[in-house]
Design a protein around this nucleic acid. Structure first.
Lengths: 299, 299
DNA sequence: ATCTTTACACCTAGGTGGAAAGTT
DNA sequence: AACTTTCCACCTAGGTGTAAAGAT
């Protein structure tokens, strides 16, 4: 007589996010290895929004890796990383005067920096694993009366596959990247936001999950293990009521990246220092903390 | 070095629901005891949408209790209670042809019926307590292309205060109702819904919380203990982008009630049979189940 | 050899009614 | 006497890394 199941599925914002993401799924690149998926409007825009300033590691084959590594905010003195210069589009898109005012800062920069120094790793599993640290951003310069969609995706940093050399505790290039996977967009479940909301409160992507399951049906972001990735945050201004992600041409958007959030996807942690930092900073991993490191006061 | 706190508060749909609810708060009645709160547009509409068919218990003083008890769906043969006839407005509001097509059914009718037979009680606490059973509804007849706001409120059934006579296991009238409390609307956090979403999936109000704290700052629904209440579900069609709950006149709405969801608010359960049914049917109360009632198979 | 998967103990986070103490 | 409040053990639900087993 326990009542938990129900004849109709629960209507959740997750379901909405998933259905949009599923609709928008497309090949991760436009190379010859591109999958059979059709390129949809937003995906086209997102692809074009990558930065024209190449990293040293870039190859001409790499459709995804055209990121600027020198994004503003790396040396921000405050507790958050301010990213006022988003990706410069390959096909230049000049943001409107209004959208150009928008700035986006990373709220958890100190923690990301600690991981970045060691070489951030993120676990990916078949059922999906959360990111830690979480991407948390706040916006300024938005129109408090307007409505915005905030979303995130994760794109390859280069065209390489890596392996970890335990004996020297460092990452080595292990060859060319595996074929790209269906690119998925994670639309923040609280979207659309009013500008007023965005000015008051930060946006947390804590619920986004990463998977290595190419056939994932949950809308999780699909990644290749042992590859390097860059998360990106996008904001789109809704110009009118009918405008959706499916006819993005009628809307304006901007893309922000935070280089300190680059990570390598793994199915098991490689660098023991990363494991230790995760255990010490993620509340859910408290059970693995070394109690011998307790201070006298804590003891 | 544990990272859970953050400089800016998390932007959650709860916060949104609360701010709207707070804005809409108003006196629970228009009697002389009415609070200092101003009557806002939606609240006016909602008040007017009560049913013109009086219950036997009604008094002329009772601005809230004008409900029809004979709502369609009580004798529904299916697993859910179909409520095609919502409250008849005191000031008649003829729904548009389009809105008139909308039907709303209660998904958890069997369980509600079990409680209703015994006399449903709901715990209210200072910090807020969930309802059990949960109000879960599904809609039909909505326009799949339109957008809708779905919300719920809880109104007094009569102008009485009750007490429970333990020696005869029944409720007695204990006098006139206490002064009405600020009426709050619980806007479903996934609002606005597309009609398509509403046709596919049910809407669950599992997160709504009830409190007896008149000064509650969390947006919970405030009730008087030992009073009888009727939950209501409202659906509003968004006519245009700018239309919000604050200028409801430009929108259309309908109200649905399910008489089997009437309950008495209590700070501790009165009827032991209600306690037993809660323990047996609410998964969170599993710890109180009598293991002596296990069957041979379960044992 | 080098990854990947699975079951698991150990957490966080928070929803239950009970029992005892508090209030009016 | 008739409620109300507080703290608690016991749950659900689900996020951690581990270790052993599995896969290629």
């Amino acid at each position: 007589m326990e009542f938990t199941a129900s004849p109709k599925p629960q209507l959740s914002s997750r379901a909405n996010a998933f259905s949009i993401a599923a609709l928008m799924s497309s090949g991760g690149s436009k190379e010859k290895e591109a999958t059979e998926n059709t390129i949809k409007p937003l995906e086209q825009f997102v692809e074009k929004s990558s930065c024209a300033q190449p990293l040293g590691e870039l190859t001409s084959l790499d459709a995804h890796g055209e990121f600027g590594g020198s994004v503003a905010g790396n040396s921000s003195p405050s507790s958050s990383s301010l990213c006022t210069e988003p990706l410069i589009p390959t096909t230049p898109i000049i943001p409107s005067e209004e959208m150009a005012k928008i700035a986006c800062s990373l709220e958890t920069k100190e923690l990301w920096d600690k991981f970045h120094e060691l070489g951030t790793e993120m676990i990916i599993t078949k059922s999906g694993r959360r990111m830690f640290p979480t991407i948390r951003v706040s916006f300024s310069g938005v129109d408090s009366e307007a409505k915005y969609i905030v979303l995130m995706d994760i794109v390859p940093v280069d065209n390489k596959r890596y392996r970890y050399a335990y004996h020297r505790s460092s990452w080595l290039v292990a060859g060319k990247a595996d074929p790209p996977l269906p690119a998925r967009l994670y639309v923040h479940p609280d979207s659309p936001f009013t500008g007023e909301q965005l000015l008051k409160q930060m946006v947390s992507f804590e619920k986004v999950k990463l998977t290595n399951n190419e056939l994932d049906q949950h809308g999780h972001i699909i990644l290749n293990s042992m590859h390097k990735y860059q998360p990106r945050v996008h904001i789109i201004k809704k110009k009118d009521h009918t405008a959706s992600l499916l006819n993005l041409k009628s809307e304006e958007f901007r893309t922000f990246i935070f280089p300190e959030t680059v990570f390598t996807a793994v199915t098991a942690y490689q660098n023991q220092l990363i494991t230790k930092l995760k255990i010490d900073s993620n509340p859910f991993a408290k059970g693995f903390r070394d109690s011998s490191r307790l201070t006298d006061i804590e003891r």
